[in-house]
């Protein structure tokens, strides 16, 4: 119902619109400090790096640095190694983490919370501390080698660090909790009645696992794998320490280029390549998810 306008009434829509704008600007203002800090500390430096990677000393733009990198074996090998290490880390995380998450999800309340604590504890220990401890365990006369020799499994100490193997062990140790948690969360979300239904329909354990649980957990496994892969691509500390200089990753090459060679253009170009790789993984993930959704492939991927 419409009543006649009150005395002195006027169209106040412009004023109200301004009030709304001001409130919105106020909210922006609250987000501003965080945005400014990120801009100063990350966006600007990355932009500078990009510029350095394409600028010649005379100020003109070229792809010289990139061409140099792609034709230098030292650099192409580091790109290859980075992807090998990352892929291998994802693989070991899947092989160890998926069954572990399954056990966690099917364990009783007490055991489950103990296992959860086991997964969380590494988070609360410094990355360097863990890497350090691993290097002690894996060194030539470390606990692992003594055990292997004492039990007569090997006669000579195995080279377990300062190589590819040591790097993978270290990376897996860092990434495994990050992989287990999303997988565990995904398995936990599965409706138990579905599994009971599978059992009542006469499905074997293996079939239930393969046909029911793993497809439903695929969402978490996928998320965990992407997370681990992306983080591994740029990882520095573990390859630097446990690789002993024999596992050249992009990240360690960048570090060398800056602190030893002072080759900023090469470091920047490698940085841009690293960033592009990360971006590419995210893009592929996004497209994959969308196309699977578009195909009506249900909500489980």
């Amino acid at each position: 119902m419409t009543l006649p306008a009150a005395d002195g009434a006027f169209d106040n829509s412009a004023l109200l619109r301004r009030d709304r704008k001001l409130a919105q600007i106020g909210l922006f203002g609250l987000a501003l400090p965080a945005v400014l800090l990120v801009t100063i500390a990350i966006v600007v430096p990355l932009a500078a790096m990009f510029w350095i990677s394409i600028a010649r000393p005379d100020g003109s733009v070229s792809l010289d640095t990139y061409l140099r990198i792609l034709s230098t074996p030292v650099y192409t090998r580091s790109v290859l190694t980075t992807f090998q290490v990352s892929g291998m880390t994802v693989l070991t995380c899947m092989l160890l983490g998926t069954p572990f998450a399954l056990v966690m999800a099917s364990a009783g309340q007490r055991l489950a919370s103990i296992l959860l604590l086991v997964v969380m504890l590494p988070f609360w220990t410094a990355l360097l501390v863990r890497t350090y401890a691993l290097s002690v365990l894996l060194q030539r006369n470390g606990l692992v080698n003594s055990f292997l020799i004492d039990t007569g499994l090997v006669s000579e100490p195995l080279p377990l660090i300062n190589n590819f193997f040591g790097t993978i062990v270290g990376m897996t140790h860092v990434m495994l909790p990050l992989f287990i948690l999303p997988v565990y969360a995904a398995i936990k979300q599965i409706d138990h009645n579905i599994i009971r239904a599978a059992a009542s329909l006469g499905a074997s354990k293996l079939l239930t696992l393969r046909a029911v649980i793993l497809p439903l957990a695929a969402n978490g496994i996928f998320a965990g794998a992407v997370l681990v892969f992306v983080l591994s691509l740029g990882f520095y500390v573990t390859p630097a320490i446990l690789g002993g200089g024999r596992v050249p990753m992009i990240s360690t090459r960048i570090e060398q280029n800056v602190s030893v060679l002072s080759d900023w253009p090469a470091a920047s170009a490698l940085g841009v390549l690293l960033l592009l790789s990360v971006g590419l993984v995210f893009l592929v993930t996004f497209l994959l998810r969308r196309s699977i959704k578009a195909l009506g492939g249900s909500a489980n991927v």
Partner: peptide
């Protein structure tokens, strides 16, 4: 876009954050 900016420090590899900051 704000999510993107605020989560950027977690998605950009730390080595790049480090040398970028070092440069600036």
């Amino acid at each position: 876009p704000l999510y993107g900016v605020l989560l950027m420090p977690a998605t950009v590899p730390p080595i790049l954050v480090a040398i970028g900051l070092f440069f600036v």
